[in-house]
């Protein structure tokens, strides 16, 4: 049985409110807030990046897993804001948390689903008997063009998952992916901010892939909507996941614990993984969680995860996602600009 043996998140402390950004662009904060279903987003400090966020999340996961980091045989860090264009984030994480040197590592990129792709890669290595434990992380310090609609949501944060067969707190019952060449959001090499296709990012992109992957998973595992106690979909904003749930006939209440986007924004590769972490923070043994990520370009990875009895004793060893959400300091747009243009 492959499953999660430890998980951890990290969200930078700074927040900026939708109102603060809207006031700079003379935009109507009220309509933006209701349109995106978001209140505020997280902002990384000047000295935080994907690597530092990944390390903090990984340390939390390691604490919960309670294993010797030397036993981790693979590290995959998914992000679209790796600090280096060439030079892995994953080895920075490995060194900082004490893994290695006998491990394999790589950085992954698939817009916002690079982290869940890492989970699948680790599952494969464990299933194949190549490694005992593996670490998959999704983390981002998301970029957005000043003044673009993305600026209200592009946030920073990440989550880390250590997978293995012993000490499992949540079993991964199965996974199903759905991918196609759909350029709804992209960033060319050397360009600072991503571009997107506006409303094209909706029906042919996000919804098609999220819904198809989810339906594929349920059919593969012979499960139906009612078999899941909680549901997490990738959260580009607070509206899209709820709409996807509606299409799939899923009760919106099941999304609530994982709908962290309203308070922290879209953490890109960290988004669905932080949503899952927040859900695991409150789930009870025996409950089943559906997670479907989405990465532009485009693809979705869907997972069925069943919580075990071990979760009760293990999850209190680290800081909860809600703790990170509550520990915050608001910044002005001027301060935000300074932090984002940082070192």
């Amino acid at each position: 049985m492959i499953g999660i043996i430890g998980y951890g998140g990290y969200i930078p402390r700074f927040r900026i409110k939708v109102e603060e950004i809207a006031s700079v662009w003379s935009a109507d904060a009220k309509s933006i807030k209701s349109g995106l279903n978001i209140e505020e987003k997280s902002v990384p400090s000047i000295d935080e990046d994907t690597a530092t966020i990944a390390v903090e999340a990984a340390l939390n996961a390691l604490k919960m897993a309670g294993i010797n980091p030397k036993e981790i045989g693979a590290i995959y860090v998914g992000s679209e804001s790796h600090p280096y264009a060439v030079k892995p984030t994953s080895t920075i994480v490995g060194e900082a948390i004490g893994v290695g040197p006998e491990y394999t590592a790589a950085d992954t990129e698939f817009a916002c689903k690079a982290g869940t792709a890492g989970i699948q890669m680790v599952m494969g290595l464990i299933q194949g008997g190549y490694i005992k434990f593996g670490l998959a992380i999704g983390a981002d310090t998301s970029q957005s063009k000043p003044g673009d609609a993305l600026e209200y949501t592009a946030a920073a944060g990440g989550a880390a998952y250590i997978l293995g067969k012993n000490g499992v707190i949540a079993e991964i019952e199965g996974t199903f992916s759905f991918s196609s060449d759909t350029p709804d959001f992209w960033r060319r090499e050397g360009i600072e901010y991503p571009s997107h296709g506006g409303r094209f990012t909706g029906i042919p992109a996000y919804f098609k892939h999220v819904v198809s992957a989810t339906q594929g998973l349920m059919s593969k595992l012979s499960l139906k909507e009612s078999d899941f106690d909680y549901v997490v979909f990738h959260m580009p904003n607070g509206k899209f996941p709820l709409n996807a749930a509606k299409i799939l006939g899923i009760d919106a209440e099941k999304l609530k614990p994982g709908l962290v986007v309203q308070r922290i924004g879209n953490t890109y590769s960290g988004s669905s993984m932080l949503g899952l972490a927040a859900t695991l923070d409150i789930a009870k043994p025996g409950q089943r969680i559906l997670v479907t990520s989405y990465g532009s370009g485009a693809g979705s990875d869907s997972f069925s995860i069943k919580v075990t009895d071990l979760i009760e004793e293990k999850r209190n060893k680290t800081k909860k996602i809600q703790d990170y959400i509550d520990d915050k300091e608001y910044v002005t747009y001027a301060h935000y600009t300074r932090l984002r243009r940082g070192i």
Binding site: A51, T52, P83, I92, A96
Partner: peptide, 20 residues
């Protein structure tokens, strides 16, 4: 202790990390 960037060697150099 927490893991942070310490400084970077300009735009093209390496990023120096460490504990703050």
């Amino acid at each position: 202790a927490c893991f942070r960037r310490i400084y970077t060697d300009g735009k093209e150099g390496i990023i120096n990390y460490g504990l703050k």
